[in-house]
Design a protein around this nucleic acid. Sequence first.
DNA 1: CGAGTCCTTGATAAACCTCAAGATATGTGG
DNA 2: CCACATATCTTGAGGTTTATCAAGGACTCG
Lengths: 258, 258
Amino acid sequence: MLTVVKHADDASCRSRASCPVYANAASVTKEAFARYSECAMGAICKRQDLRPPEFAFGSSVICATRTVRHGATLYHAGDTFHSIYTVCAGSFKTVLMHRDGVGQITGFHLEGETLGLDGVFAGQHSCDAIALEDSLVCIIPFDLLELLCREVKAMQRHVHRMMSGEIVRESGVMMLLGTMSAEQRVAAFLINVSQRLSARGYSAAEFNLRMTRNEIGSYLGIKLETVSRMLSKLQKEGLVDTRGKRIRILDLDSLTRL
Amino acid sequence: MLTVVKHADDASCRSRASCPVYANAASVTKEAFARYSECAMGAICKRQDLRPPEFAFGSSVICATRTVRHGATLYHAGDTFHSIYTVCAGSFKTVLMHRDGVGQITGFHLEGETLGLDGVFAGQHSCDAIALEDSLVCIIPFDLLELLCREVKAMQRHVHRMMSGEIVRESGVMMLLGTMSAEQRVAAFLINVSQRLSARGYSAAEFNLRMTRNEIGSYLGIKLETVSRMLSKLQKEGLVDTRGKRIRILDLDSLTRL
DNA sequence: CGAGTCCTTGATAAACCTCAAGATATGTGG
DNA sequence: CCACATATCTTGAGGTTTATCAAGGACTCG
């Protein structure tokens, strides 16, 4: 019936070594390659049930990638919306600017997670996406994704669940911001990061935060000094061990019960 | 090609008077009928470009309605997800419960607005939806909507924009909760309600709030006493005129500049 | 190793919450 | 329709949490 992509070729999405963009990303490790298998959108490339013969996608379309250096923006608020992105390696923050320049970090996006769905609504992005470290993203043209969703029911479900998941995630943050004390916010943040990292195969108990105290505070609706104080408090109580950006969770149960 | 609904019949979605559910809703006025034309999902029924002959939907499927009495729940957290809803008349709050019973209102849903999209992610609703007054909703089975989205590109866009819009809306609330003072929150809330009501043809300057101070406070992340104090403050400053739940906006510019 | 950024900690101030009491609004049964 | 019961709203006084301001220490990266 319909052919989704005209210039289908033999290049699998996995053969990323041939991607010139990737070759230039000195700071992106080979491990990132392996972990790409966990990418939220990896399903497009690799799930056999989503890739019958008539949907042989060219890597040049679906699997285009882009490197973003630490501090550089993936997209700005106001940029015309074309694509969503999944983080293959590295991490991002999304920042919503108020007038007068006071901004709020609305989310952190770790490996395998998606960003950019805010742009669907108005046809332009509503926030800035900035890399917290040298990063690599997979570029997914949204037109193409929509086309695919019309053809493949499982893909439609995937995309709908992804969007709904973002809605649920944000509801959780609203709860955090609306009802929790500073100590609870910091604890919840650490637990959340821990869970997301462990879902990607990293240690749940020990990890490096890529964001500053200031950025954590912006996300949690508190000041950086308060973040620092609460981390010290949690340390004194023996629930975590912090050494700058290095975090070790010592007592997850107590942390959760806060 | 595909027929979306088997039992298509001649009954238009507009002929709701024949709907037995509606007939029982004594508290729903005839004006609500007229305003249904503005319903977010009215597009399914009425837009001609979305309703070529092969998509003649039976009102029994798409246009099923349900009345919900003041204080009753449309759905509970944990309920299996089947449908999303648009508010034909009345209004709702969505409440996300924390452990220990402390909840947070994550949104108010006025006439013409949609709720329930949170359920797509996990296949069950993540929050309670409770009517703020006797209300009428249009029930949209999500399976059917997805089917329709696979057939009609414009409908797919509509649904995607709706979901993305919810993401953007929640980002805005996160900003409010994360960066604004109590006075700014109350002002922003009034402006927001005003805009949404005026988009439905109601007065932007004068309206009745259907929610209590407590509910407003829960949504804004402050206590009911603080809401009351800030309303009094705005009144003293001559920006609004409040008389219980009756609100009159006197100086929108100053309110916005806060 | 030196400049800049980031982090920690303390003292003080401001914003908001808690508790309390009275006022107003809303609903209900007689 | 009134009187009562209940829920909601307003306002005040005092307490708690977090922000602000400030200074010194630690980390990072050329």
